[in-house]
Design a protein around this nucleic acid. Structure first.
Length: 580
RNA sequence: GGGCGUGUAGCAUAGCCUGGAUAAUGCACUGGCCUCCUAAGCCAGGGACCGCGGGUUCGAAUCCUGCCGCGCCCGCCA
């Protein structure tokens, strides 16, 4: 309702001046109402004016209310209660707003001043299974990418896959033991968990293998040709597998977005040089480190460093992340760097950002944000660890979701069959998984519960998709084209229509609020309220079989609702079937 | 020990940034609603001293502070 406020404020100035309130003293009090219902959309608490005007808040609210109500005719109805001045959007104002939206494919969502933004997300490991932890990063990152692109920004997707480092010695040797012909090409690796575990076991238990693995690491780091070829096999097999998962999930990531750790390996010495030039680098027990000081103390109360180059000459992840920052700022020209990575790495990113800022890799014009997310917990509230407990393979989870969706469809709507049922099952099952992850505050821990995420009740994707499908059904049944109603005159004859109109008008604010904070759940919350308002509207307002004027208005509302839902879910990476 | 985060009905969550009115939503529970556009739905109802104590304020779930519980981080792993 920011537009209501924008329109109302100038009209309130003169009447308020006549009550003794100077311009600039009261505007900040006007904001969204905190009470629901039809009472108010915008409210102005008058309690703080009490000492100024030497009257009770209740009297002040009453006086303001009667002073401004004539000025706001056609915009809002004004009343007062409990020391609040309440503005409720006028029906004519609301219907005019809705009419503007019906002609706008962007549903009122404005474009921001464009920035160049890198979003680092997903980041699976080569030769390892993708599990539920990757699900969060992938789904949240993808939603953020879509929202930011929609707001007009240039977004670079960065998939920082784990494709370099010491584990590749044992992985390559294991590949040789198995025989590359059994892995390369179409065959792939059928079980990455098993592959990794076998390599690990041999490394731990077979000294001869461990020795081969260690010298293989040296060959890899010196970029020996044959070793690089073998490494490439593992990378290719894995990225094919990642692509299968991405395509099943329906995310934007492609091979063009791959920027693994290996891609930055030649920049690492450069990081050392540049840190050295600034004088930040210190030698500690043979290693090159940066001491930031401040609150960075270890458990003995001593300062602890950011490790840049280990005593053995190797680099670790801080260095790699610094190289990334340099690359993204200087080569890609990013204004903003977003890292969709779990909360446990918060301290790491704080330190890396601090080093990068002090070293001048970033300046005031750059913004680096750790877009953190909570851990995945099981139903008993424990961390879902990949070490011991049975890890849920991402592919298995997604297949299960789709198959559950398919059986629900068979049960609820036997009329759907063949390709259409299959495609609806995919949209519903995958949508359910994504939505359950996106719909709560990402910074908090996420309770992973198959029954809840696949349940088709409550604040879930299927509930929103169902509202969308019902609308599509109205149009297909009546044979009326969606576009043909987009210039209809809007009449809000019932409370349900008014309520629906308000949630639709608030759509653009919800998108902005969600994108600005990088919080997809805010958009979910609003989409749910749209679907919920629509469901109430649908019960009470017969769309077809009314007189022409009512019918065209309601059809336009239906079209707008369906567009809000599919656009909104689309920004979250979730598709809507027309029938389900 | 230090740092960071978190605590809201039986369960799961929103609201906290930017303080306002009777704390919102879903599941579960109770009771209603399909000769009518998909009942995967709708309507009504019960259920919360917003972890505990101080402070600021006309007003605190929200801001400050002290406790308590839980979690994560403090590795020459990423």
């Amino acid at each position: 309702m920011r537009q209501l406020i924008r329109e109302a404020l100038p009209l309130m100035a003169a009447p308020l001046l006549s009550l003794g309130l100077e311009e600039g003293t009261w505007e900040g009090l006007v904001g969204p109402s905190t009470v629901g219902g039809s009472l108010a959309d915008v409210a102005m608490p008058c309690h703080s004016l009490s000492p100024v005007l030497k009257k009770s808040p209740s009297d002040i609210a009453g006086e303001i209310s009667s002073a401004i109500s004539d000025s706001l005719i056609g915009i809002a109805e004004v009343s007062s209660l409990n020391g609040f001045v309440n503005l409720s959007a006028a029906e004519s104002w609301l219907s005019a707003r809705v009419e503007v939206l019906t002609a706008d494919p962007r549903m009122g969502v404005s474009l921001d001043e464009p920035r160049v933004i890198a979003v680092d997300y997903s980041a699976p490991n080569v030769a390892k299974e993708m599990h539920v932890g990757h699900l969060r990063s992938t789904v949240i990152g993808d939603a953020i990418v879509r929202m930011l692109e929609f707001k007009g920004h240039t977004v670079h997707r960065e998939n920082h896959v784990g494709d370099w480092g010491t584990p590749f010695g044992m992985l390559i040797e294991h590949l040789l033991d198995i025989g590359e012909g059994n892995v390369a090409g179409e065959k792939g690796i059928s079980d990455f968990d098993l592959f990794y575990k076998e390599a690990r076991t041999k490394f731990d238990e077979d000294p001869e293998f461990a020795e081969r693995a260690r010298s293989r690491v040296v060959m890899l780091q010196s970029e020996e040709e044959e070793t690089l070829r073998l490494w490439r096999i593992l990378v290719d097999v894995s990225t094919n597998y990642f692509n299968d998962v991405y395509s099943m999930l329906g995310v934007l990531l492609t091979d063009d977005d791959l920027m693994g750790e290996s891609a930055y390996r030649h920049l690492l010495p450069n990081v050392v040089d540049r840190l050295s030039e600034t004088g930040m680098l210190q030698n500690s027990e043979g290693a090159d480190v940066v001491f930031l000081g401040g609150k960075w103390l270890n458990r003995d109360g001593e300062p602890f460093p950011v490790m840049i180059r280990k005593a053995d000459g190797g680099f670790n992840y801080s260095t790699s992340d610094l190289a990334c920052i340099i690359d993204r700022v200087e080569r890609i020209g990013c204004d903003e760097l977003l890292y969709v990575v779990g909360t446990p790495q918060k301290q790491h990113f704080e330190m890396v950002f601090e080093v990068a800022t002090k070293a001048g890799f970033m300046d005031q014009s750059h913004r680096a944000v750790h877009v953190n997310f909570g851990s995945v917990l099981d139903s008993s509230g424990q961390m879902l660890k990949s070490r011991k407990g049975q890890t849920v393979k991402l592919v298995d989870l997604l297949r299960e979701a789709v198959s559950r969706a398919e059986s629900s469809i068979s049960e609820k709507n036997p009329g759907l069959s063949g390709d259409e049922r299959e495609s609806a099952a995919r949209m519903i099952g995958i949508g359910a998984v994504k939505y359950s992850d996106l719909s709560s505050d990402r910074t908090k821990d996420y309770v992973f519960d198959w029954d809840r995420m696949l349940s088709f009740e409550g604040n879930t994707a299927p509930y929103l998709q169902y509202a969308h499908a019902r609308i599509c059904s109205i149009f297909s049944r009546s044979g009326i084209g969606r576009e043909s109603v987009q210039e209809s005159q809007i009449n809000l004859g019932t409370p349900e229509e008014v309520d629906l109109a308000k949630t639709l008008v608030l759509f653009s604010e919800a998108v902005d609020y969600s994108a600005a904070g990088l919080y997809p759940h805010r958009l979910c919350t609003h989409l749910h309220s749209i679907a919920s308002s629509f469901a109430s509207f649908y019960e009470v307002c017969l769309v077809l079989d009314e007189d022409e004027e009512v019918k065209s208005s309601r059809l336009a509302m239906c079209d707008l609702t369906a567009r809000a839902l599919s656009l909104g879910l689309g920004l979250l990476g979730i598709d809507c079937p027309e029938r389900m």
